[in-house]
């Protein structure tokens, strides 16, 4: 619904959302740690965690959106994504981060750090993809 406070954002980023890890453990989204993602990927067998370094953050033609350029994985593949400024990414060893942490906290109640160039985010690929 356009009137939803989280319009354009997935509901699972709202503080208090229950997340199921690959081993069945339940955690709140704000309590997730780097190890939870790494261990879940190991258990899943299908998914592989990649380190995606933020190379550039630039404005988008869309209001409240940015284009983030990542350098993904060992091959340093350059990938650009357009996201809302409040969209949270999980930074290795740090936790949730977004381009506009104040807005993320306002909309989702999720505490965030400021996402910056050089931050290493967790991303996923399918193991079958080469």
């Amino acid at each position: 619904s356009p009137s939803s406070p989280t319009a354009g954002l997935p509901p699972f980023f709202m503080k208090g959302s229950i997340i199921q890890l690959a081993d069945g453990e339940l955690k709140r989204v704000e309590d997730l740690r780097t190890e939870d993602f790494v261990q879940s990927a190991e258990v899943s067998g299908e998914l592989k965690i990649d380190s995606s370094t933020v190379e550039r953050i630039e404005g988008s033609g869309t209001p409240n959106a940015v284009i983030i350029q990542f350098s993904v994985g060992e091959n340093k593949a350059q990938v650009c994504v357009e996201v809302l400024v409040e969209y949270p990414f999980f930074v290795f060893g740090q936790g949730w981060s977004s381009c506009c942490p104040d807005r993320t906290t306002q909309l989702l109640a999720l505490s965030c750090a400021k996402l910056s160039v050089g931050d290493v985010c967790i991303s996923l690929t399918l193991k079958s993809l080469k």
Binding site: P10, P11, F12, F13, S17, I18, I19, Q20, L21, A22, L26, V29, L32, D36, F37, S40, S44, L47, D50, S52, Q69, F70, V72, N75, A77, Q78, V79, C80, V81, F89, F90, C121, I122, S123, L124, T125, L126, L129
Partner: peptide, 25 residues
């Protein structure tokens, strides 16, 4: 009687982006 409300549970992999090299600019 009040029915207990089910709480949605989300899969961990929903929270991290799939960055595939096919998206390369």
């Amino acid at each position: 009687n009040v029915e207990p409300r089910s709480v949605p549970v989300f899969a961990w992999h929903s929270l991290v982006p799939f960055l595939e090299t096919s998206q390369t600019k």
